[in-house]
Design a protein around this nucleic acid. Structure first.
Length: 888
RNA sequence: GGGCGGGUAGCUCAGGUGGCUAGAGCGACAGCCUUACAAGCUGUAGGUCACAGGUUCAAGUCCUGUCCCGCCUACCA
């Protein structure tokens, strides 16, 4: 007896097989190969992070693609690695340090980065082992880290190259500043969040005049940095004050009243206070009018010396309170009106961002963005779903200079050196030897690069760039990039631009952007909402394959995909179903081992069910392959689910039981063969289970068949429509009989007689040939009669399939009323369908204009429906009659 | 303000270029411990495809408008 347990226990086999794959080096891609290359670079997770549901989805889909292509015979590379993830990682470390009673600043740069590296060393293996638990078939020998020596060299090379092209430059400009993180950040890192605020209406007296301008602002504290008041040049209300001077309350300063078309006459009072140092629009106005830029905030968000002394040192929020109080006391405050508006928050730490003028390094991404657009238009890059293309174009069109310097420590330090003697700026790979002024003392820029700069190089930096490696020749551009749509701008577009900038080639041919995982209510999963599904807990409870199957199954091309426990549960049941199908086959194979010359036997004894299952399987191969080619993972899962469960298990294995009972084991051998091949089809989705079963199944040991991981992807062998039609008739008959038994509550132990009437000799012949063979497997039958015409036996239940009628005498058990209700319902439905079909065909335009094929189909349908309807009507009439007779 | 996606069974979702009687999973109900699987099997119920027009012989599918939901994006102080 076979030793397979009744219930599939994923925990016991997953680790074993992953080690087996690793040991045999199946995931390693050769740098050079005769085979066609297929490469994916992993979106590198944070080195200190852990696997969340988004990773699970993203990496499941990638692994699925990689495993599928590997089986198809490609030289597949899945490049793994991790990201230092800049600010996020630093922030977590800062929290740790705070717990220890120290801080980043206290430690200093050197000690702090030391701690970071130490932490990296401790936690680096964690995310990798989690990806391995998920079954990811990454080429671990090639694992990279964004701060590795090689990748750091790539970063410096890219920087210097772009600097020399004039695309990277230093400038004083308004940037978004995070006072908490003490660094500049890019627009993308600013998240506008709606908050409840106020409009503060403030009086600004005009000098040497009785006029007082009423100005509304949401940020009264910024008035300390006001250097002008603006009105629209054509605003009739304010013509008389243009060019005059306003007295800035609380500050004892005089500021000009200027005219600028930016001001919206319709909005508020039509007057605008101008704070060039702390508002992007005011900054622009300031430039146009050469206004003073008064920076009233310090880097950590407190009031600077540029403000009146009494406010210096206050926090932004305390200052707001004080300013409002003072305005009120001095009668400058008109009113406070509640106002809900969007305020920019730093996406990493949640702090309200302060627009500030600052000296930063920027990258002029316009030229590269233009090239990215062209490359996409030329079809060098393709986005799936297609709608993402427009989102990409839009972003590329409105893109602004990218501030790339961060006043942080964890990252790639800018390869910029300043001459200590003459301040000359040099971009270089290493510390320069000598300045053009003759001096040889330099200091390197203190800033590090935005973390997305290094991850933007990922597709080629991981392959050894700037060296001209074999890997680059073989795998660049990579085949597909898989990621959530939420980082299209952050990462994907930067990779495209930097790929074009550094390699002159796009980094990947296809970008597949999947949805984000939401819960069953459509809410995005997040820790704060407490609706997350933890991948590792899930794997523990349900098994990796069940989880992967569920993830692939929900990944339809919509922005948010709903995942619920019940879907993972469904995956688990599916795994168990397959397990038991395998058990059934293996158990029976012990009694009926496959002879060496199985192929010959199979051909000789090819029966309807064998031809049928082979036909259906061929169809399944075709559909599954097509689904994967088009990134329709949900279609692959559904196809395989339906085939395995509802065709292979529900029907084919039931036929097999009957064949075994008749001592015709060929059906069993075919079952083993089909299951073996199905395990190959399913392997990309459920790698562990399929390997376990595949290893146990007998197969023609040909060449390299040590693992399903490297087994060839099945090819369709062709479908057989005759067999499928015949089988359809048989299954319909069987289902009708089961339906009668079910609805009339015929006990399972009771044998029934089945009388079938059909005017079609061909159908009768088929039924005669197969029904006696198959029927006993599905229902207890005492006797089967098949005839061209026969009398409906008394007290019998009836089912109608087109011109075919099935009668089951049920004298002992039949409930006439129940049977009448049953037939009546069927009759009503038939009538409805007849009416609909009739209506279509009665329309002369339909017959004239619709394609012949469609008309013919409709006619055949109507004919069949009419026959059914007629038969049902007559039987119903008879039944009513006999019913009333009984009643009399 | 602009744009995108969505609204199909109680729930979550499928329904290439219009053409079988609109499907699946989960849930519900009824009956079954049938010797691979009760994590199973069998049967049943359940939908005016958001709404209103239009194009067409034919619309869940294409067009227009409306209403909801979600998201992205924009400088309204």
């Amino acid at each position: 007896m076979t030793n397979l347990p009744k219930i599939y226990a994923p925990q016991e086999i997953e680790g074993k097989w992953y080690q087996f794959w690793q040991k045999n080096d199946y995931f390693h891609a050769a740098a050079t190969s005769e085979k066609q290359a297929y490469a994916i670079v992993i979106p590198p997770p944070n080195i200190t992070g852990s696997l969340h549901i988004g990773h699970a989805l993203d990496n499941t889909l990638q692994d699925c693609l990689i495993r599928w292509r590997r089986m198809q015979g490609y030289n597949t590379l899945w490049m793994p690695g991790t990201d230092h993830a800049g600010i996020v990682t630093e922030l977590i470390m800062e929290r740790k340090l705070a717990e220890e009673g120290t801080s980043r600043i206290e430690l200093g740069r050197e000690k702090f980065t030391e701690r970071m590296w130490q932490w990296k060393a401790e936690s680096a293996g964690y995310i990798v082992s989690q990806l391995q638990q998920l079954g990811c078939s990454c080429d671990w020998k090639r694992e990279r880290f964004t701060l590795d020596e090689g990748l750091s060299k790539a970063v410096r090379t890219a920087f210097v190259k772009l600097y020399n092209q004039g695309l990277i430059y230093r400038d004083t400009y308004m940037v978004n500043w995070c006072p908490e993180c003490n660094t500049a950040i890019s627009n993308l890192e600013v998240e506008p969040i709606e908050v409840d605020g106020n409009f503060y209406h403030i009086r600004y007296p005009v000098k040497d005049s009785d006029v007082v301008l009423e100005i509304a602002t949401t940020r009264p504290e910024t008035m300390l940095g006001d250097t002008a008041v603006a009105v629209h040049p054509d605003d009739e209300r304010y013509q008389h004050v243009i060019g005059k001077t306003a007295c800035l309350p609380l500050c004892d300063r005089e500021i000009p009243i200027i005219a600028d078309a930016y001001v919206d006459r319709e909005f508020g009072t039509g007057t605008l206070k101008v704070t060039p140092a702390h508002d992007p629009n005011d900054y622009e106005i300031g430039l146009r009018h050469e206004l003073e830029q008064r920076t009233i905030f310090t880097q950590d968000g407190h009031i600077s010396e540029a403000a009146p002394e009494k406010y210096v040192g206050l926090s932004r929020w305390d200052c707001r309170k004080r300013v409002v109080e003072d305005l009120q006391n001095l009668d400058y405050l008109v009113k406070i009106v509640p106002h809900r508006h969007a305020v920019g928050h730093h996406d990493r730490c949640g702090t309200i961002v302060e627009p500030t003028i600052s000296l930063q390094w920027f990258m002029n991404v316009r030229p590269l963005a233009q090239r990215a657009i062209e490359a996409t238009q030329n079809g060098e890059v393709r986005f799936i779903p297609e709608r993402e293309t427009d989102r990409f174009y839009h972003w590329m069109e409105i893109i602004e200079p990218w501030p790339i310097s961060r006043q942080r420590w964890w990252g790639h330090r800018l390869p910029i050196w300043y001459c200590n003697a003459c301040d000359a700026v040099t971009a270089a790979m290493e510390t320069p030897q000598q300045c053009k002024c003759g001096a040889s003392d330099f200091h390197q820029d203190e800033d590090v690069l935005d973390t997305w700069f290094s991850s933007g190089l990922w597709p080629f930096s991981t392959m050894g760039w700037p060296e001209e490696t074999e890997e680059l020749k073989t795998f660049y551009p990579t085949s597909v990039l898989v990621s959530g749509w939420d980082i299209l701008f952050f990462w994907v577009s930067r990779m495209i631009m930097l790929g074009l900038g550094c390699m002159d080639k796009v980094p990947f041919r296809t970008v597949y952007l999947h949805g984000l995982v939401a819960d069953e209510k459509g809410q995005k999963m997040s820790k704060s909402k407490g609706n997350t599904i933890d991948p590792l807990e899930t794997i523990d409870t349900y098994g990796t394959d069940a989880f992967r199957f569920a993830l692939a199954n929900v990944s339809t091309p919509i922005p948010y995909v709903s995942l619920s426990e019940s879907q993972i549960e469904s995956g688990r049941r599916f795994a168990n179903k397959i397990w038991n199908a395998a058990r059934f086959i293996l158990m029976n194979l012990e009694k009926h081992p496959i002879p060496a010359e199985v192929d010959a036997i199979e051909t000789e004894q090819e029966t309807l069910e064998i031809t049928w299952i082979r036909s259906r399987f061929s169809h399944t191969i075709k559909t599954t392959t097509d689904a994967l080619e088009n990134f329709r993972f949900y279609e692959a899962t559904q196809t395989l689910y339906a085939f395995l469960w509802h065709e292979f298990c529900d029907w084919y294995l039931e036929f097999t039981k009957q064949r075994i009972a008749q001592d015709e084991p060929a059906a069993l051998w075919v079952a083993a063969d089909v299951l073996e091949q199905t395990m190959r089809l399913l392997h990309p989705l459920m790698p562990f289970l399929t390997e376990e079963i595949w290893q146990q199944l007998p197969r023609n040991r040909t060449q390299d068949d040590k693992s399903v991981t490297i087994a060839p992807w099945p090819e369709p062998t062709g479908e057989n429509s005759t067999a499928e039609t015949t089988m359809a008739t048989l299954t319909e008959v069987i289902e009708s009989i089961r339906s009668i038994r079910g609805e009339l509550n015929v006990p399972i132990g009771a044998s029934v007689e089945v009388h079938i009437q059909s005017p079609n000799s061909e159908v009768r012949e088929r039924l005669e040939t197969y029904l006696s063979q198959y029927l006993p497997a599905f229902t207890r039958v005492a006797d089967i009669t098949i005839a061209e015409s026969l009398q409906k036996p008394p007290a019998s239940a009836e089912a109608v399939i087109g011109e075919l009628a099935i009668y089951i005498p049920l004298a002992d058990v039949i409930d006439l009323e129940a049977e009448q209700a049953r037939l009546s319902k069927r009759h009503q439905q038939a009538l409805k369908d007849v009416t609909a079909a009739q209506k279509t065909l009665d329309n002369p335009n339909f017959v004239e204009r619709a394609p012949e094929k469609v008309v013919a189909q409709k006619r055949a349908q109507l004919e069949r429906l009419l026959t059914e309807q007629d038969k049902l009507a007559r039987s119903l009439a008879m039944l009513t009659e006999s019913g009333s007779e009984n009643g009399d």
